[in-house]
């Protein structure tokens, strides 16, 4: 078993919790899209779309994107480890995923900033 408080152990929990959060969001996403299934669905869908474009929701989108990026980059690290890559350099691999993730989230913030500050 992993020894508690090692990097790998923390990464394992981060991977689990981020995965569950993304799965939860997927169902929320389907619920919101289901506005189109209502009678006069297009009007309902458009109303939902206007709401989720509000600045608060765009900030939530960035948080969601950050969670997805963390899960995806850590997943790539795990697949690399399956092939025996970057295991001894585990510390570097985890820092690398966090560094690349931070850059990706920063770019997302720059892209979405106009929709947050108006």
């Amino acid at each position: 078993m992993y020894h508690k408080n090692t990097r790998g152990y923390k990464a394992f929990w981060v991977h689990r919790i981020s995965g569950l959060l993304i799965l939860g969001y997927l169902y929320l996403h389907l619920v919101l899209l289901s506005a189109i299934l209502l009678p006069s669905g297009a009007a309902h869908f458009n109303a939902v779309a206007r709401v989720v474009e509000q600045p608060g929701f765009v900030v939530a989108d960035i948080v969601l994107f950050a969670i997805i990026v963390v899960h995806a980059l850590n997943g790539i690290r795990l697949i690399a480890a399956d092939f025996g890559a970057m295991i001894r350099e585990n510390r570097l691999a985890i820092w690398l995923t966090m560094g690349i993730g931070a850059v990706m989230v920063f770019i997302a913030v720059l892209m979405l900033l106009p929709h947050i500050v108006g």
Binding site: G41, A42, F45, A49, E53, V58, D61, F65, I68
Partner: peptide, 17 residues
């Protein structure tokens, strides 16, 4: 798939049409 989804959706000014 998810990369493509996020890229084409563009988030803003969407509508049923």
């Amino acid at each position: 798939f998810l990369g493509g989804h996020l890229w084409v959706e563009h988030f803003m000014n969407t509508s049923a049409a």
